[in-house]
């Protein structure tokens, strides 16, 4: 589904990703862990198409297409979803209008008919229940004045509405208390299927207690330096990132 080969990327002359290789297949959950500044969020941003970053080398194939050639909206149309670390507040745009526009633009991209008001409402009700989000939140301006937990829940709700093939969760656990993490993780787990995949980007192991990954990769200094199963995350939690750092001292 996603195939990253030798990906190099940076921002303003600064090299951040220095040769990433990663394969994700349908049904899999991958976690990317790593210390601050290792390039985790850069990877998520490059995959979603944030224009600040420049890809200098390598390829990314997603669902049979050259991902790097696509605009952010085309990537979403192809089934890629990024849950933001810091969801943006947009005053004056109601969450419901926003999500309705998004759902129908994605459908248009896929050559499907736009949902009418009744069908949209039905889908929304279903996904609201699934992700434990409240109607009053959705009638407010997008993320405006939402608490940290509400913003993250809204991200998971949007993900549920758009039904992506690959969901990238960028530090979705940051700033959340344990109850909020549990709600968000439940939402994500309900959306897992054999056809879609999840890429979790996280600094801490605790999210992985709730969304159990099939594979864990450690990103350090722009490269994946270690890959393993969920036990690797536990080891990192116990020993910290220092042992990774000491194993990977640059010559």
């Amino acid at each position: 589904m996603l195939s990253i080969k030798n990906l190099h990327a940076g921002i303003d002359e600064k090299k951040i990703l220095k040769g990433i290789n990663l394969e994700i297949k349908p049904g899999e959950v991958h976690a990317i862990m790593g210390p601050n500044g290792s390039g985790k969020s850069t990877l998520a941003s490059v995959l979603a198409g944030r224009e600040d970053y420049e890809v200098t080398d390598g390829t990314v194939e997603f669902a049979g297409k050259d991902l790097l050639e696509l605009s952010p909206e085309e990537r979403a149309g192809e089934g890629l979803f990024l849950a933001f670390q810091y969801p943006v507040e947009i005053p004056g745009l109601s969450t419901t209008n926003f999500i309705k526009t998004a759902v129908n633009e994605v459908r248009k991209y896929r050559g499907e008919e736009a949902l009418d008001a009744v069908a949209f409402l039905k889908l929304m009700k279903e996904k609201m229940a699934q992700t434990n989000i409240d109607q009053t939140l959705l009638s407010r301006s997008l993320n405006e004045g939402f608490s940290g937990g509400e913003k993250k829940r809204n991200e998971v709700f949007q993900m549920a509405m758009l039904q992506p093939k690959l969901a990238i969760l960028d530090e979705t656990d940051s700033g959340l208390d344990i109850d909020a993490i549990r709600i968000v993780a439940n939402g994500v787990n309900k959306l897992r299927s054999k056809d879609n995949a999840v890429l979790l980007v996280t600094h801490y192991q605790r999210l992985l207690d709730y969304i159990v990954p099939d594979f864990v990769h450690v990103l350090y200094n722009g490269r994946i330096v270690k890959s393993g199963t969920k036990e690797l995350a536990l080891e990192l939690e116990e020993r910290g990132y220092d042992f990774i750092k000491s194993e990977n001292v640059e010559a």
């Binding site: 979603a48 198409g49 944030r50 224009e51 605009s71 952010p72 909206e73 990537r75 979403a76 149309g77 979803f81 990024l82 933001f84 969801p87 943006v88 947009i90 926003f98 999500i99 526009t101 998004a102 633009e105 994605v106 991209y109 949007q158 758009l162």
Partner: peptide
């Protein structure tokens, strides 16, 4: 705001 624009586009909404 570029970040707002990117946020909407990342949800499949055209520029």
């Amino acid at each position: 705001d570029e970040e707002s624009l990117f946020y909407l586009r990342s949800r499949g909404i055209s520029e």
